[in-house]
Design a protein around this nucleic acid. Structure first.
Lengths: 361, 361
DNA sequence: CGGCCCAACTAATACGTATTAGAAAGGGGG
DNA sequence: CCCCCTTTCTAATACGTATTAGTTGGGCCG
């Protein structure tokens, strides 16, 4: 800041001039490593001294242009991660990605441009910004498939947190084993004597929902219970779930509910409202288990029976997988499935033996 | 992924070949803007079509190498931001930086490499990684001055969140007005009749501490109270603050405490312990005000009288300042001071009229 | 018909680094 | 004294884009 004139950053050429060597020599010394032992010790020191004096630092863009890696991992989310109301849900993922990225010696690039929901796109502006990073971790429920397909087609290395499938390519991912977790939940309920278990399903037919559905059916099959498609309810509007409605279901013979939390938390909120209304007591009148973590874990809400994603661990695994991908010459998809943790909670219990007349439909 | 052979990303040259034009023309069409209206409409369409068909996306490294800017803002913290125990303190800064970065159309680069405390340095590996970004927001209490000096010397654009000074250069920053906030706090206590106000000062003599000290003295002066250097206590170990100790102080005539929270929260924890012990009642026996936010705001702790930093706002301002810096041809330092918000709380009250014999020292 | 200007394009170059082929110097063996 | 090898360095080039100066061809004016 001594003079106001625009100062150019020192380059290897400047160092070369000062040390009386060629730019190539500087490059060999600086980027060190393998080929640098063919440099005389005196020269090497001269170069390093000059670099020091000039305050040299490598131009990462140039380095990366040349084809080398630039030691950046990207994190791209299909939903905004930071807004406070979703903070508690996404934070562990963020935390895990950050930790493991650092542990692997990379820096983390958060793609945040154009948070305005509509424009939130990988391919905004004609430039695929993701490619500034060596590879990318992707996250989020509302995936735009075309973009994923394009990424796969371009052979860009990325790992999704959560199972995602796309036509015409294999996607690497770290996914929670919703199938087993859901099946086990059904098994637990069956062991408690439940026969008619209603599954409240998310509206969007994303992979996590498909997996839970598969787990539901598998659980029923393994418990020897019949499958009744009327017992899968897709909710367009979670507000439909009211005390009266739940009582109707109970009247029709349902003794347990499985609820799939959505990222907007409205279903869980509706169920909590039913709980507080006193119209239905969980688990005395009806058992209730959540197929995942409620996004907003306020701490004041009930301790629902549920299973829980190891989110920090998943995120760390995703980064590890990504780094492995980068080391491979050809990108073959890698997949990892991690088990969910069962949280006992207090909202399931034995199936009621018989119903009084007040429950008749 | 159709074939396992490594596929090269399409470049402007590929497009040019396909569209039967030159690379320069492609560049003009793609990067659009001003000079692109000298291109015939037919040509432009041909180029765009070819780009589309090839799935072109610009190489950001090359673009940035050429133009100098790559639309990245960096965030560098001198302490780890993510670890959960400091999460609540730093999160608002992170949030603000992220929001405003996105709003300004930049992406955010988190410098996380080498979180291992010792190696956590801007100049790790001989290359100043910060410079991958166009500019940088810095954050944290445990600053390494040499690094700041070097950054200034290199004329790298950055903004510190918090006032930081360094010899041989002007640093841009967004700072909370600790001076006024502290002075006002003293004024408040003086108005309540307090005459001997003990200031518990942080051990490290960083700028925030200097500002509070200045505010303390200014507040005393404006209230017409004498300055007594014995009333400034530097605590090497916050554990020294015990109920007995506070009673000693009270015995020596002190009627109010000003405490400067440290980022490890130990002082506030010690005071909370004193409060819980019942040995001293705040504010009946002694008034107590915090000169800032306790880092760990658990919600269960007392509602201390204090002032509070507009952290999200400060972070956003820092990003705005940074973007302004980038627009300037020559970097002149820019500074911004934002007021703190007074939080009444319940830990200050009128000075006790007289003391019983149990308080004598 | 010659000169000139304009529209539409292209050739050439710079950006900073990594890498490779090869040059220059020095030494040792025949 | 020549040849070859080793050590140590350099020249040249590629990476993909943006930009500037310049080229081409055609139309218009005098």
């Amino acid at each position: 800041m001594a003079s106001s004139e625009r100062r150019r950053r020192p380059t290897q050429v400047d160092i070369a001039r000062r040390a009386g060597v060629s730019q190539a020599t500087v490059s060999l010394v600086i980027s060190g490593g393998a080929a640098s032992d063919q440099i005389a010790e005196a020269t090497r020191r001269a170069v390093l001294t000059a670099a020091e004096e000039l305050g040299y630092s490598a131009n990462v863009a140039a380095r990366s242009l040349k084809g080398g890696r630039n030691h950046l991992l990207g994190l791209y989310t299909f939903e905004p991660v930071f807004p406070t109301d979703q903070r508690d849900f996404y934070y562990p993922f963020l935390l895990g990605v950050e930790e493991e990225t650092a542990a692997q010696g990379y820096d983390l690039l958060l793609f945040s441009s154009v948070t305005s929901a509509a424009d939130r796109s990988i391919y905004a502006g004609g430039a695929n910004r993701l490619k500034l990073a060596d590879g990318c971790v992707l996250l989020g429920r509302h995936v735009r498939r075309e973009e994923l397909t394009a990424l796969v087609k371009e052979d860009f290395p990325f790992v999704f947190i959560g199972r995602r499938e796309v036509e015409g390519g294999e996607i690497s991912y770290v996914a929670a084993d919703y199938v087993s977790a859901t099946a086990q939940m059904v098994a637990r309920l069956a062991a408690l004597g439940h026969r008619r278990i209603l599954y409240l399903r998310a509206a969007q037919n994303s992979e996590p929902t498909q997996d839970r559905t598969a787990g539901y059916r598998r659980g029923l099959a393994e418990a020897g219970l019949p499958f009744d498609s009327a017992l899968i309810r897709t909710l367009d509007d979670p507000a439909e779930v009211t005390g009266a409605r739940v009582r109707e279901w109970i009247g029709s013979g349902v003794t347990a509910l499985l609820a799939e939390p959505t990222e907007d938390d409205r279903l869980v909120a509706a169920l909590a409202a039913v709980d507080r209304s006193g119209l239905v007591r969980f688990p005395e009148d009806c058992s209730l288990a959540l197929l995942g973590d409620p996004p907003l874990w306020t701490g004041e809400s009930r301790d629902w029976t549920r299973f829980s994603l190891p989110r920090v661990g998943m995120a760390r695994e995703a980064v590890r997988l990504l780094v492995e991908l980068l080391a491979q010459p050809a990108h073959t998809a890698r997949r990892l499935s991690v088990p969910c943790e069962f949280v006992p909670g207090d909202s399931i219990g034995p199936a009621p033996a018989g119903r009084g007349p007040e429950w008749s439909a």
